[in-house]
Design a protein around this nucleic acid. Structure first.
Lengths: 229, 229
DNA sequence: AGAAATAAAAATGTGCACATTTGGCCCCGT
DNA sequence: ACGGGGCCAAATGTGCACATTTTTATTTCT
């Protein structure tokens, strides 16, 4: 009998969640080897449970698994990172265009309430909260369309960009600019989706600029790995 | 020793591909139970290989797996189908908008060549080919952006809508209209992305109309809907 | 000493036996 | 006849031992 006699599916969920959170919070550096046995020890579960969770994360494209060579936290190239943001930019353009014809008053006020929270976090200089709220803003936008597929795509992109910001969060990294978010909502309220799209484009350009910068020094080569031991 | 001594990863791929193709081609009716042992016999592989492939397909959301109760070909509700097409519509709007600013001459001619193929297939009344080319048109569009993430999303949506057309392909189902595809390309050539977006919207509306129709008789009985207080 | 070959150690992958859960069936009681 | 419970067969899920592959360490030869 276990100390905590949880059912198997619950253990699966726990293992997946703990790994997922560790990735999301950037506690696992890019390139880190995720050895099955070591993780099993660390999490106090059997190797098979870890195995399952790792393959699940690989299916989500949140880690890399090379057959017979194990799992690693990905070290995306600058180009791959650009592609993720580019995809988000393109998708959000479609979303905003669609929202132009179907955005309720309730959604608008909900978005504006969120902007308040973002501003509060920015004023309080709570960086972790700012980053989280910043992501949630884009989720709010797509969720307004009430389309499970689109929401999934955006969440997918965000979960992966979280690894990237942790990779490149050198100088400050002040998350998304709150004012730019506000401008998008304002354009939506005015019933001007084309402006919203343009503002969103600019917004992503700024975010990308902040990330493109340090690409040179943090590239694929991971010295930590090369010179270990 | 096996008759075909393939390596394990090759077997995995084969099992996955054969199941994937069967789904794509509509050879597995919606609601069909995918029992591990029976599939293993049918494919001449061990149950574990089938198991792996099924879980992979479930991660792709192409089949449904309920814990302890096995895998089934999904029977999407009319609402879920609508959501998939709606997502494609929204995503393609973003894609076309983006293409407006970055579509090379080479891409345009490539698209026009594809239209020729579609017209030939339509003239030849080759329905299967028409359906395939019709899907490929939308893939060509997104691939023009050269963004792996977006391409993946579109392919994801298409692979799932294939199940849906097989579910609802009652009367004729003449795939996408070639003329509507042509109109989109024409608008792109004219450098008028907004028209392209509008035409794409209309196009998806037509496709959806053709599918929404028969929803009544083939939809799985959803007691939630029927007996909701 | 350096490089190639080789052996040992460690990590991943797989098959199988067994545990657990589910679903059908029969029987029984009201 | 209908509904409920319990039993049995079948299907899914899991742990473990073993096979295979990779990686590291060592030896050997030039």
């Amino acid at each position: 009998m276990r100390r905590t006699p949880k059912s198997a599916p619950e253990i699966d969920e726990m293992v997946y969640d703990r790994l997922s959170n560790a990735l999301m919070e950037g506690k696992l550096r890019a390139g880190t080897k995720l050895a099955e046995h070591k993780l099993a020890d660390a999490l106090g579960v059997s190797r098979e449970r870890v195995r399952k969770a790792l393959h699940r994360l690989a299916a989500d494209r949140r880690i890399d698994i090379i057959p017979n060579r194990g799992a690693r936290v990905p070290s995306p190239s600058a180009e791959e990172i650009r592609a993720v943001y580019q995809a988000h930019r393109t998708l959000e353009a479609g979303v905003l265009l669609q929202l132009g014809t179907s955005l309720s008053e309730a959604m608008l006020t909900s978005l504006e309430q969120h902007l308040h929270k973002e501003r509060d976090a920015a004023r309080a200089n709570d960086r972790a909260l700012s980053v989280r709220l910043s992501g949630e803003f884009h989720i709010l936008l797509v969720d307004a369309l009430d389309n499970a597929e689109l929401s999934r795509f955006i969440r997918d992109l965000l979960s992966r960009s979280s690894i990237m910001v942790s990779l490149y969060e050198h100088s400050g990294h002040s998350a998304c600019g709150v004012d730019e978010h506000a401008a998008i909502v304002e354009a939506l309220r005015k019933g001007d989706p084309m402006s919203a799209v343009a503002l969103s484009r600019d917004h992503f350009t700024h975010v990308q600029e902040r990330l493109d910068f340090p690409a040179a020094d943090s590239a694929p080569v991971n010295f930590q790995d090369i010179f270990q031991s």
